[in-house]
Amino acid sequence: MPSLVAGAVFGAAYGASAYLINSGDPATGHMCGLVSSMLLTGAMGLRFAKTGKVMPAGVMAAAGALGSIYNFQKHQEWTS
Rank of each mutant, 00 (worst) to 15 (best):
M1S: 14
P2T: 04
P2D: 00
S3R: 04
S3K: 06
V5T: 14
V5Y: 08
V5N: 07
A6E: 10
G7V: 05
G7T: 07
A8Q: 05
A8D: 10
A8F: 09
V9S: 08
V9M: 12
V9Q: 08
V9G: 12
V9C: 13
F10W: 06
A12K: 05
A12M: 12
A12R: 04
A13M: 08
Y14P: 08
Y14I: 05
G15V: 11
A16G: 15
A16T: 14
S17G: 15
S17E: 07
Y19R: 13
Y19W: 15
Y19E: 11
I21W: 10
I21D: 09
N22I: 07
N22W: 15
S23G: 10
S23N: 15
S23W: 12
S23V: 11
S23M: 13
D25T: 14
A27T: 11
A27I: 07
A27H: 08
A27L: 13
T28S: 15
G29A: 07
M31C: 11
M31I: 12
M31D: 10
C32T: 15
C32D: 05
G33L: 04
G33I: 01
G33S: 08
G33F: 03
L34Y: 06
S36V: 06
S36R: 03
S36G: 15
S36C: 15
S37M: 01
M38I: 15
M38E: 10
M38H: 07
L40I: 11
T41K: 02
G42M: 04
G42S: 01
G42V: 02
A43V: 12
A43C: 13
A43H: 06
G45K: 03
G45I: 02
L46T: 11
L46S: 13
L46N: 12
R47I: 13
F48K: 00
F48Q: 03
A49L: 12
K50Y: 14
T51N: 03
T51A: 05
T51V: 01
G52R: 02
G52Q: 04
G52M: 03
V54E: 10
M55E: 13
M55W: 15
P56L: 05
A57H: 12
A57T: 03
G58Q: 00
V59F: 10
V59G: 04
M60Q: 14
M60Y: 14
A61W: 00
A61R: 00
A62M: 08
A62S: 09
A62H: 02
A63Q: 08
A63I: 11
A63E: 06
A63D: 02
A65F: 03
A65K: 00
L66I: 10
G67V: 00
S68W: 03
S68R: 00
S68N: 03
I69R: 03
Y70Q: 14
Y70W: 10
Y70H: 11
N71E: 03
N71I: 00
F72P: 01
F72S: 10
Q73G: 08
K74M: 15
H75F: 15
Q76Y: 09
E77K: 09
E77A: 11
W78Y: 15
W78A: 08
T79I: 12
T79W: 02
S80W: 06
S80H: 10
